[in-house]
Design a binder for these strands. Structure first.
Length: 483
RNA sequence: GCUCCCGUCAUCUAGUGGUCAGGAUCUCCGCCUUUCAAGCGGAAGGUAUCGGUUCGAUUCCGAUCGGGAGUGCCA
């Protein structure tokens, strides 16, 4: 069996949509699993909306996710160019072939004429479906006047194909229209450009969203007319917004870059997207490699689904918790930019790595991690006003000083030693841990919620810890007396 | 209207002609605990409806209802 060739073919008309990522992912997974080739092609034939900037955003997003392409922009390949607007000569050639073989014809009807007819019909019968009347279909002369090229679509028979996800699909040809394949300016339309590219790029499996399922029969007709082998098809169920509508910016974050900025781990993004419309028994959490291993088209579902932000978040949390899925070193690296955003740009990766274990179970995103790590890297913690008011009160001062003095005498600054030291002191002083824990926590971290006290003390180190306890005591002294 | 596609807890899903219909997220309760998490234990929650086939249907078939895609010189 020859190795499959798959492709992802986004239009550079905006950011990379999360649904697009899922399509790219499934193609990529199959290519990687089978040792096949993953081609990236840019479908920029909509010149009104396509921009270089959005093409770059798409490439950057795919790189961030680790969805590497074997052929395409930036890496080249034997089937280039990989931008449709650079392939115009190829489409022209194929158009000529179709005309020569009688599968296509020049049509001189103007858009205005056709629109007028469409409108007129709508007026007469609002429910009727307008169809190109075939004006130029059997025309004899083909002058070099402005024209489009239409496909001479068969009206009898049917197109049947076996979808790798949906199974056998049959569509009768009776309703076919002689659809336009080439605009009057020589730029191909989607169905034609995609087919010509897939043929000339040797694509063997076309996997895309279910919204393209409607395009498959006419495309198969095109393959046949071109005398090209018809590839396999796999359609993926739609990912809809929570309310069942098409997922768009109206429903919150839908571009990958937004999730990157929210501090999601790329592998977690892939994990969530993979489990959407695909399953592997009861397993929910996968590394990138595990996805490659486990993926199959047979295990893809057919029903559309609704995007769930909560579940997405929890998948990200699972990844951040797991050393296996996200080694501390990579984690630390990823948190750095988010610390920098908080004005903590001098922090080293090593320092973050040392402190990381304190937030590992808690942070759901890198943004949260940066927030939870924040106080380790400041000279003094940023005091939460409410926490300070509640816990750094008058009678906390003495307790903080007592704890400070007890800890100051510790021979070694380890969690166990500190805990033992503190316990001994508390017992001697007739206090309970709860009497000092919250004031100490606020003094050390500026917050009422934090990792375990001894973890915080340990990571902070002796000098910083003692200084913060002292400072906390001063703040407590200065606090207004309880009314 | 027509063509095509879909329908298991709120959500993502597993599964089977006979199961207590399983897991995960969310929610709720409890345990643990110096806080917040994490962890552990428990609860609630589903086969869209109606017919048929069958000894037996969530599973097979049909209809209905519901949802989606398209009906462009957009992709």
């Amino acid at each position: 069996m020859t190795k499959p060739r798959l492709r992802f073919a986004p239009s550079p008309t905006g950011y990379l949509h999360i649904g697009g990522v899922r399509t790219a992912l499934f193609n990529w997974l199959w290519a990687r699993k089978t040792g096949g080739t993953f081609v990236l092609r840019i479908e920029d034939t909509d010149r009104e909306r396509s921009t270089d900037a959005s093409r770059e955003i798409i490439l950057e997003s795919l790189r961030w996710l680790g969805l590497s392409w074997d052929e395409g922009p930036g890496v080249g390949g034997a089937h280039g160019p990989y931008m449709q607007t650079e392939r115009l000569a190829i489409y022209k050639e194929h158009t000529d072939r179709l005309i020569a073989s009688g599968h296509a014809f020049r049509c001189y009807c103007t858009k205005e004429e056709l629109d007028a007819q469409r409108e007129a019909l709508k007026k007469r019968d609002p429910k009727a479906q307008f169809k190109y009347p075939g004006t130029c279909r059997d025309r004899r002369g083909e002058p070099d006047e402005r024209h489009v090229v239409r496909f001479k679509a068969p009206r009898d028979g049917a197109v049947t194909y076996v979808d790798k996800v949906f199974g056998e699909v049959t569509t009768p040809n009776v309703e076919n229209q002689d659809f336009v394949i080439m605009r009057s300016d020589g730029v191909p339309l989607y169905n034609f450009g995609a087919v010509v590219d897939d043929v000339t790029m040797g694509i063997t499996l076309v996997a895309r969203g279910r919204d393209h399922m409607i395009n498959t029969p006419p495309q198969i007709l095109l393959y046949q007319a071109l005398g090209a082998p018809v590839p396999e098809f796999a359609h993926l169920p739609m990912m809809l917004a929570p309310n069942g509508e098409r997922l768009s910016k109206r429903h919150g974050a839908v571009s990958v870059t937004e999730y990157r900025d929210k501090g999601y781990a790329p592998a977690a993004v892939l994990n969530y997207l993979a489990r959407f419309g695909w399953s592997f028994g009861d397993q929910e959490i996968f590394s990138r490699d595990e996805l490659v291993q486990a993926f199959s088209w047979e295990a893809c579902g057919r029903g559309d689904g609704k995007f769930d932000d909560k579940k997405f978040l929890s998948i990200d949390h699972e990844h951040l918790k797991s050393e296996r899925l996200l080694p501390a070193s990579d984690y630390a690296e990823s948190v750095l930019p988010f610390l920098a955003q908080r004005g903590l740009s001098g922090v080293t990766k090593e320092a973050v790595t040392r402190a990381l274990y304190t937030v590992r179970e808690r942070a759901r995103t890198f943004v949260e991690a940066a927030d939870m790590l924040d106080y380790f890297f400041r000279d003094a913690p940023v005091m939460d006003e409410k926490a300070q008011k509640k816990f750094l009160v008058k009678d906390a001062a003495a307790r903080l000083r007592g704890l400070r003095d007890a800890l100051a005498g510790a021979d070694e600054w380890t969690e166990a030693a500190l805990e033992a030291r503190a316990n001994a002191h508390l017992e001697a002083a007739g206090l309970q841990i709860k009497d000092v824990a919250q004031p100490a926590r606020v003094a050390l971290t500026g917050r009422s919620a934090s990792p375990g006290l001894y973890q915080v003390l340990f990571v902070l180190g002796r000098d910083a810890s003692l200084a913060r306890l002292s400072r906390g005591a001063e703040i407590a002294d200065a606090s207004a007396s309880p009314a």
